[in-house]
Design a binder for these strands. Sequence first.
DNA 1: ACCTGAACACCGTTCAAGT
DNA 2: ACCTGAACACCGTTCAAGT
Lengths: 241, 241
Amino acid sequence: MVFVSSDPLPPPPRLAGRARAEDPRTPLSRERIVDAALAVVDADGLDALSMRRVAADLGTGPASLYAHVAGKEELLELCIDRVSSTLVIPDPDPDPDRWEEQVKTFVRDLHHGLLEHRDLARASLARIPTAPATLVVIDRLLALLRAGGLSDQVVAWASDLLPQYAVASAYEASLFIERMATPEGERYMQDVGAYFAALPAVRFPNIAALAGPLMHNPTPDARFEFGLDVIVRGLVALRTG
Amino acid sequence: MVFVSSDPLPPPPRLAGRARAEDPRTPLSRERIVDAALAVVDADGLDALSMRRVAADLGTGPASLYAHVAGKEELLELCIDRVSSTLVIPDPDPDPDRWEEQVKTFVRDLHHGLLEHRDLARASLARIPTAPATLVVIDRLLALLRAGGLSDQVVAWASDLLPQYAVASAYEASLFIERMATPEGERYMQDVGAYFAALPAVRFPNIAALAGPLMHNPTPDARFEFGLDVIVRGLVALRTG
DNA sequence: ACCTGAACACCGTTCAAGT
DNA sequence: ACCTGAACACCGTTCAAGT
């Protein structure tokens, strides 16, 4: 590889940390816009995601995005679909004997896949999935659920309930993680613990009595795993055969 | 009742519909600010809730609110707590024989209490409850759960899981209701149904096979009731005694 | 067809100044 | 102590104008 004077210069070194404004000559595309949007979320969280910020990171103005994307709503949907497309969902060759563990693994993967992108899960709440990669995830989940001896109606509603749980938990977990990441946040969580412990037992006898278990987080995933276990056990209880 | 010329005039008649700017002489207070905020949410939804809008409805400027409320975050927390305080939670005299139905009634009341305020539930997601009325709700839930033969740890985590489900479902239900309320929204929901029905069965065999059950909503609460049943059955499965 | 500058109608929050 | 006007640093989206 040789450089001649007419070659474009290689990109200059730059401080990491903040997103670089990309070469404005490479044309915009949905792909690049979604890349930039996810980079913003990964770097600074969902609240930092704005059309103006994405445009600036791409070295252009906000109006330019609207040639490729209908608006912020569609951009969020595209981000979710991109994340769905990265989920490795092994076609699990549904095995009735290992059904419960297979369902749990599926929901866990969803949960953790979302958690890789901070609080992006918030944008996934209450969205009807219509984008292709997301539909693939649902279809695979349905395939798995159908191997569990459940009625079609239970399978259908369970394919709503389980992702709802994965998403809501990922959102809550992301806020928890975010808080624990900063010194003030860690302080705040300790204060909350102390606050609950100090609550007047006359007015809140049960909170006072259970302050320990209420605050207990043996592992970061313990609460998530508990709810997942409850839901899967409940589904098993609805088996017809 | 007689009017003399020095009496302040009674408030002039006005078009309903939009919130009136209240008498600026009656002093601001947290109470009145929360009243106004909830009125905005009830009238136009959570997205319409802004400090500026609340201030305008109270006949003042946005800066005035900050003497009574730390910021928008605190205002949202106060709104949630206000809603919690309106929930009628009959101390249910926990009865192990009717435990499952009592738990369901409790979670249903939470769900529907939130639904009375549009998509306010969104603001309740991922918030650690510390305000008094919300803590009362949790304490009562704990009391009820403790009558079910569950370990303290299961009781504690269930008191997270059940409200999480009530809140997430209320948020999703509110969006569904909101959409069905407008003609375009109703149209959109029909289009989604048609879209799923028309999905290529080769790529999405299970969605295609279950299009009927997936779209089936016999009553507005059917999905919520399904999930509630699943979770309560799962908790029953965790009974020690 | 794709991109842009400028504008419109908004945000939450701060702060010096008033009463 | 409580309130305010004005400002700061942002938003999403539109639209006429450019290439």
